[in-house]
Design a protein around this nucleic acid. Sequence first.
DNA 1: CAACACATTTAAAGCGCTTTGGAGGCAAAA
DNA 2: TTTTGCCTCCAAAGCGCTTTAAATGTGTTG
Lengths: 343, 343
Amino acid sequence: MNLKELSALLGLSQTTVSRALNGYPEVSEATRRRVMQVADEHNYRPNTRAKALATGRAMAIGHVIPLSTQHEMMNPIFGDFIAGAGESYSQAGYDMVLSLVADEDQSRAYHEMFAKRNVDGIVLHAPKMQDSRITMLQEIGLPFAVHGRATDITTPYSWLDVNNTSAFRRATDFLLDLGHRHICLVNGQESMDFAFRRREGYAAALQARDIAPDPALMFAGEMTEVYGYDTVRRTQSLETPPTAYLVSSIIAAFGVRRAIEELGLVMGRDVSVITHDDDLSYLRNGAEVPVFTSTRSSVRVAGRRLAKLLISQIEEPCASPLTELLEAELTVGRSTGPAPHRT
Amino acid sequence: MNLKELSALLGLSQTTVSRALNGYPEVSEATRRRVMQVADEHNYRPNTRAKALATGRAMAIGHVIPLSTQHEMMNPIFGDFIAGAGESYSQAGYDMVLSLVADEDQSRAYHEMFAKRNVDGIVLHAPKMQDSRITMLQEIGLPFAVHGRATDITTPYSWLDVNNTSAFRRATDFLLDLGHRHICLVNGQESMDFAFRRREGYAAALQARDIAPDPALMFAGEMTEVYGYDTVRRTQSLETPPTAYLVSSIIAAFGVRRAIEELGLVMGRDVSVITHDDDLSYLRNGAEVPVFTSTRSSVRVAGRRLAKLLISQIEEPCASPLTELLEAELTVGRSTGPAPHRT
DNA sequence: CAACACATTTAAAGCGCTTTGGAGGCAAAA
DNA sequence: TTTTGCCTCCAAAGCGCTTTAAATGTGTTG
């Protein structure tokens, strides 16, 4: 069923039917109702491609996901982010198109998305500190919004980020207040902007109490279970092992816990752990009482909001860039306790 | 840059330019080269929307992801599947469009995808045993392929599946060979087709050795870490606790391991564990030596192959449905060993 | 040299929609 | 009665591409 057939059926012109369906005022309420009803009966939906061609709006938003080295796609937080964004999109009538590309093809992918004009905007994932993609998109002139920020980019752009610095500063303070003095940072890869900011927060808290950050206690790597496990095994054999771990991801935190338990230590008594918790739907941090004390910020909510932000950006093209900074909340679980006295 | 401008630039008609770019034979090699070059210089890409409208092919494939109850999207395997599918899509020049919808809107979503004509085909995720979506899509007449199967649907359709039955039968046999007689099945939700098939395999292996499957040792649920943990805690306090666990997901297996270690038992000595391993890129089963003995089958490869299968289905519409059954491989790790003698 | 086949190229229609610029009808105002 | 304005509705152009049918040139043959 297309518009032509539908309007023939109704004995009206295509113009009128189109207007009736799109809520234009030049149609009497009576005919509008009639049109609506018949359209509904025949389950009519305008052909997206034709509509997009006519309006110049694709009603779709692109996500370019680098496949290979960065492992972004496989990043377990991605699913939840997409789920959140998808909610906003379907609410606003947008489709989501994913383009999975090898790292080296990324630049081409963005240009192509623009030239092919099958999206109205793009979400940028996992920004690095100086991310060339941002300036590229600015030059191209395709609306975009970044999940995170790129510290070294000074020109304004739209973004949504968690306040990583304050979250990790607060978590570190919490541990310091509990008497911990040897706090190990189990961070993500430092080329990532969020990891940099977390380290800043961690270092700032220490320095505020005149503690020099110890490089031997600061780790950066891909946030896997094994990474968390290995880091604990390695650090617990130091001369003065850390009494607390500040972890960047709940997956790594699982590894941290495993190593702690394997060493015969009790988490929350012998060793304290705080993790950042993206509130992933399939990796819940305990049921009623959270297992881990954590800085929590739902990545799903982030997806939802960033999508909205981008949509309003698209629909109001002249407006200046929009930004949103989410504060993580510190949730106390059973993984933290006062620093044990050294024997 | 659009076709009109490009052909004006070249001093050729749109027809010729279009043909040159699309590899039609009615164009001299000389002009083709010239066209190609100028198009390249100006970074020309045909407008997808216009092309789709003219050809009737959207060059896009849809994935409808139910959001709420089923938690399919958040399912951690989803990311890897999508990554695999994405590889095949971009290779073949297709886009991937995701539609995240609430469970109750699913039927509407499929009809809409068809009516809006913005995809050429659909991938169906997480089929249940009698899945109404399959018959619905057959009626609609939109090409589709299923990741998994629906036991109760008898009409032919395209699918790709892991041989869940044989995988779990083989794993159970392996445990039986090691002398285990009380094997606990930690399965996924039994409305899911794959879970049903796995139980079938498990039961068949037991029955082949005249062991009656014990309902007290068969669990079904959402495959979270906590679910695995709880199941072990619960079963280890039985009168005759199981000496082995057969687990449906590596995430649940992490919980199984945690509970085992917490009980002071040693995995592979006191209790054996086999898990199904989807070979997720961010949850590797150990480095050199796998931690878990597992039935392994890469869900990413599955995505890649299913996408190809669907594409050939789309491009050869009259052909009969295609199917592919992947065999999981049994990888022996350190989580299994001979059944301990009862004290 | 005319006639033909063949290789290139083109004009124009059409894909299904939106939207501009009118047209027709009718009631109120002149 | 004519004019004006408003309310409905419509014909047709146009979005950027493909594709059919036809036109143009070029070389070959009788």
